[in-house]
Design a protein around this nucleic acid. Structure first.
Lengths: 116, 116
DNA sequence: TCGATGTATCGACAGATGTCAATACGACTG
DNA sequence: CAGTCGTATTGACATCTGTCGATACATCGA
C-alpha cells in the first residue's frame, strides 16, 4: 500500500496542477485530502514543527518522544503517516532514523486546492 | 462550542504568528490542526474547490449536493465544519445559504506551521 | 556471538468521524 | 394563513483513528 503521492515539492511546471478553471475531481480530492489529513492531528503538527525548528532541520524518534509526551511506538506511527503523505522524509543512519520536513509539499497541496 | 479561531485571513502583523525560531506549542498545534482537519476529507476538499471554481465564487447547498453525490444533510454538515474552521463563510440570503471561500485562511495556517 | 539500543510492527481498545433517514426550522408564495 | 422549498439538526450506525503495551527487527559495541 502506501501509494506514492504525485504531489511533491517539485511541482512540475504546467502552471496549475488541477484541471484549471475547474474544480478538482474525486481522485484529485482524495490525494489532496491525504496530505491535509496528515496535518489534521495536533501531535503531527507539533512533530513537523519540532523538526522544522530543530538545529539541523532534522530529528530522530528519540528526540521527539519527550517533547510531545507520547510513547515511542505512537511517535513512530505518526511519523510514518507524515512520510506517507509526502510531508517528511526518513533516512536511516546507523541505529537512528532521521526525519526531515519536505519543503514546499504543504504549499503545493494548498495551491492545487485553491489555484488562486 | 465552536470556538472561533484567531487564525483568519487577516493575519495580524507582528511578523510570525508562532513563537518564532521555536516550535508551536500544544495549544497552537491544536488550532492549526483544526484547520487542516477540516481539509482532511475528500468531500470537503471537493466542496471548497467547487465553490472556488464557481462563477461568482459562491454557492448554496443545493448547488453542491449533486456534484459530490451526497445527501443534503451530509453536505450541510460538511459546510458547517468548513465554516467552523474559518475556511468558508455562510451568508443567509432569502431561502438560500450562500457559502464563500475565505481567501488566505489556508495559507495562513500553513505559514504558522512552517514559518519558512 | 551476545547484549544493548533505537525503531517498527502487532493487537487491542476507547473515542472520533462520515453517512444516512427522519424531522424540525425559516423564509417565500399563493 | 397554509403550503412549499431550502437548509439545519437529531439519532443511529459502521468505520476510521489515536493511543498504548508487548514484541519483533536492525544495528552497533564488547
Amino acid at each position: 500500500m502506501t501509494t506514492t503521492l504525485p504531489l511533491t515539492a517539485d511541482t512540475t511546471g504546467a502552471c496549475c496542477g488541477s484541471v484549471a478553471h475547474g474544480a478538482v475531481d474525486a481522485a484529485g480530492a482524495e490525494q489532496i485530502a491525504r496530505v491535509f489529513k496528515a496535518l489534521g492531528d495536533p501531535t503531527r503538527v507539533r512533530l513537523l514543527s519540532l523538526i522544522a525548528a530543530s538545529d539541523d532541520h532534522e530529528a530522530c524518534i528519540c528526540d521527539l518522544t519527550e517533547p510531545v509526551g507520547l510513547t515511542q511506538p505512537t511517535v513512530s506511527h505518526h511519523m510514518k503517516l507524515l512520510v506517507d503523505a509526502g510531508l517528511a522524509t526518513r533516512e536511516q543512519r546507523g541505529r537512528w532514523a532521521y526525519y526531515r520536513v519536505v519543503e514546499g509539499a504543504l504549499s503545493a497541496a494548498a495551491q492545487s486546492l485553491v489555484p488562486r
